[in-house]
Simulated scan of single mutants.
Amino acid sequence: MIDFDFTANYILEDEIALLRPLEEADIVHLLQFAHQPDIWRFSTQKGDTEVALKKYLELAIEARTAQKEYPFVIIDKRTNAYAGSSRFYDVKPNQHNLTLGYTWYGQQFHGTGLNKHCKYLLFDFAFGNGFERVEFAADTTNLRSVAAMKSIGCTEEGVLRSNIIRLDGSRRDTIVLSMLKDEWENNLRQKLENKL
């Protein structure tokens, strides 16, 4: 079994990105992103008002305390600006698997390369700490997210049909993608490094 410590302060960084554990003091700096509705278009939790985003972030912190999820705040080191958030969830140390998601960035950080740096750091951390599989799940209509996952080497595994209710009450199909440790170590780490 992997010794993943939900109470540890894991800091992941390179020259562009800094990911550190989400804390209550970060919330006030992230509330600006509630006013960017496109960020929340595919979310299964409301974050499109300051009240909703505050609750979304508080629930993430509570999930870490309950040792269910590990949320990060993302800082763009080029401007020292708060940029968004991501988290590990559905962490299964006994199976050496985890899911990476709830990832969002302010619109001003889209297309800047920040996401690739963050994904590199998160993959390198997960696989370097004994996890064998990192999974992703997304709304099949979230083409930007699906394309981003495929561009860094994730393999599409299938579609869960009508498995989640969207915030608007409609049902969504969820695409599941993954990356395996041996894929990362054999060529995907280098492939992603070449894109940074």
Rank of each mutant, 00 (worst) to 15 (best):
E132K: 07
V134K: 00
F125Y: 06
V146Q: 08
T140A: 11
E157L: 14
E156V: 13
A126H: 02
V134G: 02
D124V: 03
C154E: 08
C154P: 06
A137K: 02
E135S: 14
L160H: 05
V159P: 00
R133Y: 13
T155K: 13
V159H: 04
G130M: 05
A138G: 03
R144Y: 08
A138E: 10
R144I: 12
V134E: 00
T141D: 05
F125M: 03
S145M: 00
R144C: 08
G130T: 08
S145D: 02
V146M: 11
K150W: 10
G128M: 13
T141A: 11
R161C: 07
D139T: 12
S151D: 06
A147C: 08
R133C: 06
F136E: 02
E135V: 14
G158I: 07
A147E: 03
S151T: 10
C154K: 07
V146F: 01
G158Y: 04
T155L: 13
L160M: 10
E156A: 09
G130A: 11
D124P: 02
D124S: 15
E156F: 08
S151K: 13
A137C: 07
A147F: 03
G153L: 10
C154A: 15
L143Y: 14
G128Y: 03
F131Q: 05
A147K: 14
A137I: 02
F127D: 00
A126G: 03
G158P: 05
V146G: 00
L160A: 03
D124C: 04
E132N: 12
G130V: 11
S145I: 03
S145G: 02
S151L: 14
M149H: 08
L143N: 10
I152S: 05
S145C: 07
T155D: 06
E132D: 08
F125Q: 01
I152P: 12
G153R: 05
G153V: 04
G153T: 11
G130F: 05
A126L: 01
G130K: 02
E157N: 15
S145P: 02
I152D: 14
F125H: 06
I152A: 10
D139M: 15
A126Q: 09
G158T: 04
S151H: 11
T155Q: 10
F125G: 09
A147Y: 01
G128C: 08
A147T: 13
A137S: 13
L160Y: 01
A138L: 03
C154V: 11
G130D: 01
L143E: 14
A147M: 07
S145Y: 00
F125S: 12
T141Q: 15
A147G: 07
C154G: 05
V134W: 04
F125I: 08
A137T: 10
G128I: 10
